[in-house]
Simulated assay, not measured.
Amino acid sequence: MTTAFEDRAAGALMGALIGDALGVGPHWYYNLDQLHAAYGPWISDYTTPRPGRYHEGLRAGESSQAGWLLELTMKSLAERGGYDEADFCQRMDRDFFPLIDGTPNNGPGGYTSQSMRESYRLRVKRGKPWGQVGGWADTTEAAERVLAIAVRDARDPQAAARHVSGNTALTQIDATVGAMTTAYALALGQLVQGVRFDGQIGSALMGLVREGKLPFHSVTKPDEEGVPDGPERPRQAGQFASPDALLGMGYIATAALDPDVRIEPAWKVSLVYGMPCAIYHQMPAAYHLAARFADDFECAVLHAINGGGQNQARAILTGALVGAMVGVQGIPERFIKGLDRSQERLQLARRIAAQAAQG
């Protein structure tokens, strides 16, 4: 029998896959008039990309490369029983890099992201080892796959932070990107455990920061006894300068739930926080939609999609958050049925959910 925890865990994974597939057709329209001319005033389901667009050749309900890499990560988790960095890297070498050539418009899903092109260049073309192939892309590309790790480690935030930050650093080495990706993953883990996405979302996590159990430096924590005054001690990758990535999401959620602070219609969150790909545009929009539509998966992901720009990433991140709150049972059946290989993927998601439930 599937528990509520398992339903939420599977819902997060399916929500992300659905968000990715919803974005395949209308991806990267920065001119909203062009978006509406192509798909009408409101996109309500999976669509086929127009000729000449980024994912040309895919059918409605199929996945972009982001969904492909999320599924690769999910398979590694399911088959290894948890996060195994060596296995993940081996799968990238064996199953992914041979399918791309380092150019943008190539490979599974029809488009290869910036971070993956750089990792390919350093790993395949220059022969560098894993650990030396990360680049400076300031995007959500790592977040779109590590969310699966966050679900698997939902009951162990310390492990989640360690595994997510480590996997992120394989392809994206900017510390701010790492902090915001890790914070998102930790929040997702809280939702899988049954927490609501509201103004208190960061409270429990901040408690763990103050206890030294998460890799965020608490700048207001009293100096440790016996540690002399002087410059900050050096930190390694995955140890972040401040906990603000955890704190900020609570303020965004508070604003989204405040009746005096309204963005109408909600898809215009993309105009408020920005349409581009950078993580500091994408995360706030996803947090706003997750708080506002915590019980309405359809509204959440469709407002993410109809905002244009990098709507695919916005829908992936939002879909995972709201999917974690409503569970698979709260996702409209048409989104599951219309997703390519839906039953195979649902089975994979439930397998990871069952492992997560065991801790």
Score class of each variant (00 low, 15 high):
75 K>S: 07
2 T>A: 15
84 D>E: 12
102 G>C: 05
123 R>Q: 03
133 V>H: 07
159 A>D: 10
304 A>T: 00
222 P>M: 10
91 R>S: 10
4 A>G: 12
49 P>F: 08
160 A>P: 14
284 P>N: 14
251 Y>K: 06
86 A>P: 06
86 A>K: 13
215 P>L: 05
158 Q>E: 15
129 P>R: 11
353 A>L: 00
63 S>C: 04
290 A>L: 03
177 V>G: 10
77 L>C: 06
186 L>V: 01
29 Y>P: 10
189 G>D: 05
10 A>K: 02
321 L>K: 03
168 T>E: 14
18 I>D: 01
144 E>T: 03
312 Q>I: 03
282 Q>V: 00
129 P>V: 04
152 R>A: 15
199 G>R: 11
316 I>M: 13
169 A>Y: 12
131 G>V: 04
322 V>L: 07
73 T>S: 14
143 A>M: 08
256 A>D: 13
210 R>Y: 08
25 G>W: 09
341 R>E: 13
66 A>M: 10
123 R>C: 05
307 G>F: 08
30 Y>C: 00
167 N>Y: 01
344 E>G: 13
98 P>N: 08
142 A>G: 10
8 R>P: 01
220 T>L: 09
340 D>A: 09
220 T>V: 09
20 D>Q: 07
244 D>E: 12
80 R>S: 13
121 R>W: 12
165 S>H: 08
306 N>G: 10
28 W>Q: 05
71 E>V: 10
91 R>H: 12
286 A>I: 01
172 Q>W: 02
171 T>N: 12
159 A>R: 15
345 R>W: 02
354 A>S: 11
210 R>E: 14
335 F>S: 09
135 G>I: 00
146 V>N: 06
195 V>N: 14
160 A>L: 12
142 A>E: 01
218 S>Y: 02
312 Q>V: 02
271 L>N: 07
95 D>M: 01
248 G>C: 07
147 L>C: 13
76 S>N: 02
355 Q>V: 04
201 I>F: 01
132 Q>C: 11
208 L>K: 05
53 R>E: 09
52 G>R: 06
48 T>E: 14
16 A>I: 03
224 E>N: 08
258 D>W: 08
338 G>T: 03
187 A>P: 01
104 P>V: 07
95 D>Q: 14
145 R>E: 03
30 Y>N: 11
144 E>M: 11
355 Q>A: 14
156 D>E: 09
281 H>I: 00
263 I>N: 04
270 S>H: 15
30 Y>D: 10
120 Y>L: 01
285 A>G: 11
243 P>N: 09
254 T>Y: 08
334 R>C: 06
128 K>M: 11
40 G>P: 11
356 A>C: 12
29 Y>W: 07
347 Q>S: 15
314 R>S: 04
202 G>I: 02
63 S>K: 07
153 D>N: 15
268 K>M: 09
358 Q>R: 15
78 A>D: 11
217 H>M: 08
191 L>K: 04
305 I>G: 04
335 F>L: 05
172 Q>A: 01
309 G>F: 09
303 H>R: 03
302 L>C: 06
288 H>N: 02
136 W>Q: 09
221 K>V: 00
174 D>Y: 05
41 P>V: 01
133 V>K: 07
16 A>T: 05
338 G>P: 01
69 L>Q: 03
273 Y>F: 15
239 Q>R: 12
263 I>Q: 06
248 G>W: 04
316 I>T: 07
178 G>Q: 05
54 Y>A: 13
296 D>L: 04
196 R>F: 03
131 G>K: 11
145 R>D: 06
